[in-house]
Design a protein around this nucleic acid. Structure first.
Ligand SMILES: [Mn+2]
Ligand SMILES: [Mn+2]
Ligand SMILES: [Zn+2]
Ligand SMILES: [Zn+2]
Lengths: 137, 137
DNA sequence: TCTGCGGATGAAAAAGCTTCTCATTATTAT
DNA sequence: ATAATAATGAGAAGCTTTTTCATCCGCAGA
């Protein structure tokens, strides 16, 4: 139930927040731009402004409910935060996104940061390529 | 000499192109936003429009003279392409940027892409943290 | 050195994404 | 139910980047 998640995050239970969380949880795609969410709301008949979508997604990010990514192309994409870190590989032809975690890479990153004198707070690895489906054509 | 590099890249030798390449080669910073380059041009007394800066940097990228990166914060940064791939670690406090290459990570990336059925075309790893200097305060 | 063509430039407008403003409305604690 | 407070919608504005278009320049050929 979305309302308890919102309350737990210290957010008032409002219609826009419930509907947006609903879309993030129900949609078959895990990665959404603000525009994607806005259009999905329109399709369900909700008249929620784009500014509100941006505000709510930013609040969800601050509350730890979603993660924001900067895929190439300028705009942000959001996905439900399910607690575990992962990285992304994107098809440059069709836009498909796959997720992965690799402990070898994660460990090396920690070492490199330490070697360079950094205390690492975050990291993201984006790989771009042509997916199996798109290779055939 | 900049003009021969431009000719080699198939670009006409124009004042904006020479000056911009000059800034990229002479500056102590390796990573520049378009705005950075524009301001540096103004400081040397050159009246070159921002649109031209964007155009030239995009052409340099297409010609393989520079690499474009998308650090967090929305805008692109450019650096001279010295042929060898490297990744980046950025200080979230002071903006410092360090570069590194790690063969273990590079190799794992190839494996992961292959496992997921992708033919990898590009990749970028951004690490964020607090640098040695900024940790002290 | 002169000429002419195609490409390059500058200035301003426009585009695309995101944030802000402010009047109105909804939520929550009492 | 009421009051205090926060959230919303619509539109304006902000920022980075691209496009438009009239003018200008580099450069190959004469
Ligand atoms: Mn993901
Ligand atoms: Mn670099
Ligand atoms: Zn594909
Ligand atoms: Zn620092």
């Amino acid at each position: 139930m979305e309302s308890s998640e919102l309350r737990k995050a210290g957010l008032k239970v409002t219609l826009p927040r419930v509907k947006i969380l609903d879309i993030l949880e129900q949609s078959s795609n895990r990665h959404h731009s603000a525009e994607d969410v806005y259009k999905a709301l329109l399709e369900t008949g909700e008249e929620i402004g784009l500014a509100t979508v941006y505000r709510v997604l930013t609040q969800f990010e601050a509350a730890g409910l979603v993660k924001r990514h900067h895929f190439e192309g300028g705009h942000s994409v959001f996905e439900l935060n399910q607690g575990t870190h992962h990285d992304h590989i994107l098809c440059v032809k069709c836009g498909r996104v796959d997720e992965f975690v690799d402990e070898t890479i994660e460990a090396r990153q920690q070492d490199i940061a330490a070697e360079l004198g950094y205390e690492m707070t975050d990291h993201c690895l984006y790989m771009y390529g042509i997916c199996a489906d798109c290779k055939g054509k």
